[in-house]
Write a protein that binds this DNA or RNA. Sequence first.
DNA 1: CAAACAGTATACCGAACGGTATACTGTGCG
DNA 2: CGCACAGTATACCGTTCGGTATACTGTTTG
Lengths: 188, 188
Amino acid sequence: MDNRDTILEQALTLFSERGYDAVGVQEICDAAGITKPTLYHYFGSKHGLLEAVLERSFSVLKSRLSAAADYKGDMPLTLQTIAETYFSFAGEFPVFYRLQLALWFAPKESEGFKAVVLHNRFQYEMIEKVFLNAVPQHGNMRGRHQAYALTFLGTLNTYIGLGLNGFATLDADLARQAVRQFQYGIYS
Amino acid sequence: MDNRDTILEQALTLFSERGYDAVGVQEICDAAGITKPTLYHYFGSKHGLLEAVLERSFSVLKSRLSAAADYKGDMPLTLQTIAETYFSFAGEFPVFYRLQLALWFAPKESEGFKAVVLHNRFQYEMIEKVFLNAVPQHGNMRGRHQAYALTFLGTLNTYIGLGLNGFATLDADLARQAVRQFQYGIYS
DNA sequence: CAAACAGTATACCGAACGGTATACTGTGCG
DNA sequence: CGCACAGTATACCGTTCGGTATACTGTTTG
């Protein structure tokens, strides 16, 4: 692992644990065992470093999500596949997922929020497309696909929060539970 | 409105818009039209200011929630009352609600997260109690009251997020929709 | 070999950070 | 009146902030 990767790794950990604004560039350099000119050589600025950190992991999530969100006529199955994709990704990269959740809810004018907004739009559109394509089969969804996409993502993130905080295990079983609750409610 | 209130007001706005760490004490003083010794006279530290900001609004939410979460044998009604309480509170104090949402998802080791963790525990316990009391009527809930409390809160916050971002109006109707989705899923 | 270049360190920049020592003001009260 | 005290401002503290000018490596390449 070269210096560039080490910096990315340490920055991700520190941002995730304490927040982008609360972590200084010097601290990242110390953790990575390099000096500031090295960091600035690779990333240009603290903001550029954040974007590189996000890009590295989001690209993985995006490609997996693209594969999972390919609706082929079976809504429950597609939702289940998406849920499993998210859960296994969050379980595999919990430190990153924590960071992206925090940035998603960060203040609108914060640097962090602005850095994730495009990545999150991608996710949203991916999922919206599923509901949109399902309209012919599920007529009652017409006109609600935006709300469904957002609340489905919200439900997944709620469950992932449970997992990341040790209240549950992020496996296919939990994914089934989340999807069932989303589709049929709590009495099922 | 005296200086103390002005400081609280301006700090809330700035923290909510740009985040606790990204806002400097000097900036709050400028916005409030006072100087640093005045701020430190009232709040002792930046952290103390944050706690005062949170306390002021959380105390309102807590007392309303205490009244709403009084389970009297009718689960759907109680959930509906709680949802309406949250929605009207978030609609009334959107700036504060944004801040508390951001802090709830903030990194575990950040000052902001630590400042809200007790307030959030209170909310969680209030809602858990409802599900716990409902177990005799709804046997299938036994052992799931923790998960239900957390996912119910998660569903509410997902919908409140929709409202705060202009995708919906935070009224009793949206509360009904959120509660219905939580109880019966999306096909209802 | 020599030039070019990516990568790295030393040492530094001005600005902003959170916080405070000191002193002055106004008001309430014995 | 005269004392106490809350409230406020001026001016400053040491530290850390994000970022950089300069120079030195080692490797690649014409």
